[in-house]
Design a protein around this nucleic acid. Sequence first.
DNA 1: ACAATAAACCGTAATTATTCTTATTTACAA
DNA 2: TTGTAAATAAGAATAATTACGGTTTATTGT
Lengths: 140, 140
Amino acid sequence: MGKKVTEALQKLKHHGYKYTDKREDMLEFFGNYDGYRTASDVQEFMKERYDGISFDTIYRNLHLFHDLGILEATELNGEKHFRMKCDTSKHHHHLICKECGKTREIELCPMEYIEKELKGFRIDDHKFEIYGVCYDCQST
Amino acid sequence: MGKKVTEALQKLKHHGYKYTDKREDMLEFFGNYDGYRTASDVQEFMKERYDGISFDTIYRNLHLFHDLGILEATELNGEKHFRMKCDTSKHHHHLICKECGKTREIELCPMEYIEKELKGFRIDDHKFEIYGVCYDCQST
DNA sequence: ACAATAAACCGTAATTATTCTTATTTACAA
DNA sequence: TTGTAAATAAGAATAATTACGGTTTATTGT
Ligand SMILES: [Mn+2]
Ligand SMILES: [Mn+2]
Ligand SMILES: [Zn+2]
Ligand SMILES: [Zn+2]
């Protein structure tokens, strides 16, 4: 079991949530993929090992993981996409492959370069994403 | 009637689309607002002067305007938001007020600063948006 | 002005992603 | 073990958007 998954399960226990096989498998699913996946990707994966798994279970756990900071989320084509939270030590952004959801990190955060343009606004959040097709998906 | 609206109506005619009061009013709605509005904002506005206006009319025209480059769009909280297309002479990005949808321009485009980080990916698009609350909405 | 025609529109049903509800099952702690 | 809250399943509900069949209307040519 990957380190990220172990840490996530500990975080769940620490917050009083229960351990379940489904949760572990969902976490493994994300832990093994360096990119964004949709709820329906998760469902497809889970359906193979838990026949009749409920939408509710998928969504409830996705939200739980997100609330606990285990997953991070973005919205793309009207669908929420989730991935394992990146190393938070240095804030960064992503290139996202529209085919497979895999990401590459972008060191630069544009917020560092604009201060005076923001006066008067109360800033809550920002988004910088580049969309395209990764090398592997191009050769398909 | 504003310049943007006149130009838009000409563009419609030029592409063989018909003039209708509803289209003019929708365009006026956007022409008078420097920010993003949702389909339901449009519908609320249109319902007052055209009782029983159909969803189809709203969405069909929004798409038409978008396809013709009259409106630009972004996705926010699972809902598409539209605004009059900005002056295309210089590419730029926006601060967006989450309360009223109004925008402020950001001169800087981060794409200019990253070239080598993109090798191998085929870049199709990018998004840089800052979300917050504008001065007017803060004092409410 | 009048008629022909394609575009626009209405009313409503369908779709898609997501959330909610209620009853049942399960993890885990006492 | 057993009690209890948490987790789940099944399916209904919701919200935004899209699709469809029939009707109306803007435009073009007479
Ligand atoms: Mn990252
Ligand atoms: Mn602008
Ligand atoms: Zn940033
Ligand atoms: Zn840009």
